Computed example of a mutant assay.
Amino acid sequence: MTAEVPATIIQDVEQVLARISDAFVKLDREWRYTYVNHKLAELAGMNQEDFLGKSIWEFLEAVNSRLYTELHPAVAEQVTVNFEYFYPKWHHWLKNRVYHSETGGSILITDITE
């Protein structure tokens, strides 16, 4: 039996993710966006809702890219992965810290373009 997480804790976590200066992404096991904070939307020049439910691979046009080969081990092998990657679609260099979970993965992204 698993304990239910109180709504106040969920709200607190969402508020923290909304305030951090780095971009944050939560993906499900099918690589679909389930959460993006405002920083990622700002970086991409889009709305947060534009990401939700879409596959990261189709959205970023990144199948067979270095991004693809770096992200897969994090979820498939349940390991943490850190790497820098140039996102051609957004014209930014980003440092990615990928964390696994049973339900998919999370990515903390820092813009290092400058």
Rank of each mutant, 00 (worst) to 15 (best):
M1G: 15
A3N: 14
E4W: 14
V5M: 15
V5G: 09
P6R: 08
A7F: 13
A7V: 14
T8A: 12
I10N: 12
I10Q: 10
D12F: 07
Q15M: 09
L17C: 06
L17W: 04
A18Y: 13
A18Q: 14
A18I: 12
R19V: 05
I20S: 05
S21G: 08
D22I: 06
A23I: 04
A23R: 00
A23M: 05
F24E: 06
K26D: 15
L27P: 04
D28V: 10
W31M: 11
W31D: 09
Y33S: 00
Y35T: 14
Y35Q: 12
V36R: 00
V36A: 02
H38Y: 07
K39C: 15
L40I: 11
E42D: 07
E42M: 01
G45L: 07
M46T: 07
M46G: 09
E49N: 07
E49D: 13
D50Q: 03
D50C: 03
D50R: 03
F51I: 01
K54I: 04
S55K: 01
I56S: 07
W57P: 00
W57T: 04
E61Q: 15
A62N: 08
V63M: 13
Y68R: 01
T69E: 15
P73D: 11
E77Y: 09
Q78R: 07
V79K: 14
T80I: 10
N82S: 12
Y87E: 13
P88M: 02
W90E: 00
H91Q: 13
H91W: 08
H91D: 15
H92T: 11
H92M: 07
H92I: 12
H92F: 08
W93N: 05
K95I: 09
V98E: 04
H100N: 07
H100I: 00
S101A: 07
S101H: 05
E102M: 05
E102P: 05
E102T: 06
G104D: 04
G105D: 01
S106F: 10
I109L: 02
I109V: 12
T110R: 11
T110P: 01
D111M: 06
T113Y: 00
E114H: 13
